[in-house]
Amino acid sequence: MKEFERKQLLERVNREGATVGVQIPETIEIQGEMIDLREFVFEIKRRDTIPAGERERVDQAKRNLRRERLERLQPIEDNEVSYEEGRQLANDIVGIDRALNALEQLRPVDLTQEEKLQNAADQKRWMNFLKKALGRGGGASKRGGR
């Protein structure tokens, strides 16, 4: 591949906004294993947040995708592939970046719904306690002042 072609491919994969309009690949081979990447991302993304039980699975997927991105980028950087092979690798990289962006946008769920309800109930009890304590304190001083 010619130097300007290599630079062009590298610029494409490193460009801000390179993933705009790009679809997540249906499947991808990572470390010799075929992964239904689009299905996985959509399954996780449907939830809008990462459930506590899924956090490790999502984190592992992101690590694997980042590693695979680097492995596909290296032959382009080292000029070890033809321009056609480089174009295919660049397409793969942009697709991987699209999947990574989708997974990065998810918010982790730090508290389960039950924990949120428990915290709200604890706050309510604390506020009631403070109101009573302050009310008794005020009532006692009024009685003491008569």
Rank of each mutant, 00 (worst) to 15 (best):
residue 135 G to S: 13
residue 76 I to V: 04
residue 52 A to M: 12
residue 136 R to V: 12
residue 128 N to E: 11
residue 29 E to C: 06
residue 41 V to T: 02
residue 118 Q to E: 15
residue 16 E to L: 06
residue 94 V to H: 02
residue 15 R to N: 08
residue 55 R to G: 06
residue 120 A to N: 02
residue 43 E to P: 01
residue 112 T to P: 01
residue 86 G to S: 07
residue 123 Q to S: 14
residue 145 G to A: 14
residue 141 S to T: 09
residue 64 N to W: 05
residue 133 A to D: 14
residue 21 G to S: 05
residue 62 K to A: 07
residue 96 I to Y: 04
residue 114 E to L: 06
residue 22 V to I: 10
residue 96 I to S: 02
residue 28 I to D: 00
residue 22 V to M: 05
residue 126 W to P: 00
residue 71 E to D: 08
residue 125 R to W: 03
residue 66 R to T: 08
residue 27 T to A: 02
residue 123 Q to N: 13
residue 26 E to H: 09
residue 17 G to W: 07
residue 107 R to S: 12
residue 140 A to L: 12
residue 95 G to N: 04
residue 69 R to S: 09
residue 30 I to P: 00
residue 53 G to M: 08
residue 69 R to C: 07
residue 145 G to M: 15
residue 17 G to M: 07
residue 128 N to P: 00
residue 14 N to E: 12
residue 95 G to R: 01
residue 106 L to T: 00
residue 132 K to V: 12
residue 136 R to G: 08
residue 10 L to K: 06
residue 20 V to A: 06
residue 57 R to Q: 14
residue 84 E to G: 01
residue 127 M to G: 03
residue 91 N to F: 03
residue 139 G to C: 07
residue 24 I to H: 00
residue 91 N to H: 04
residue 74 Q to N: 07
residue 7 K to H: 14
residue 82 S to F: 03
residue 19 T to N: 05
residue 77 E to W: 05
residue 10 L to M: 10
residue 38 R to Y: 03
residue 54 E to C: 04
residue 24 I to K: 00
residue 84 E to C: 00
residue 39 E to V: 01
residue 124 K to G: 04
residue 18 A to W: 02
residue 62 K to Q: 09
residue 139 G to D: 12
residue 53 G to C: 06
residue 124 K to P: 04
residue 31 Q to T: 05
residue 124 K to A: 13
residue 31 Q to H: 08
residue 18 A to Y: 02
residue 19 T to P: 03
residue 101 N to T: 13
residue 108 P to I: 11
residue 32 G to Q: 00
residue 64 N to M: 12
residue 86 G to L: 08
residue 46 R to K: 11
residue 40 F to S: 03
residue 131 K to Y: 14
residue 84 E to I: 05
residue 72 R to V: 05
residue 129 F to I: 07
residue 14 N to H: 11
residue 144 G to C: 10
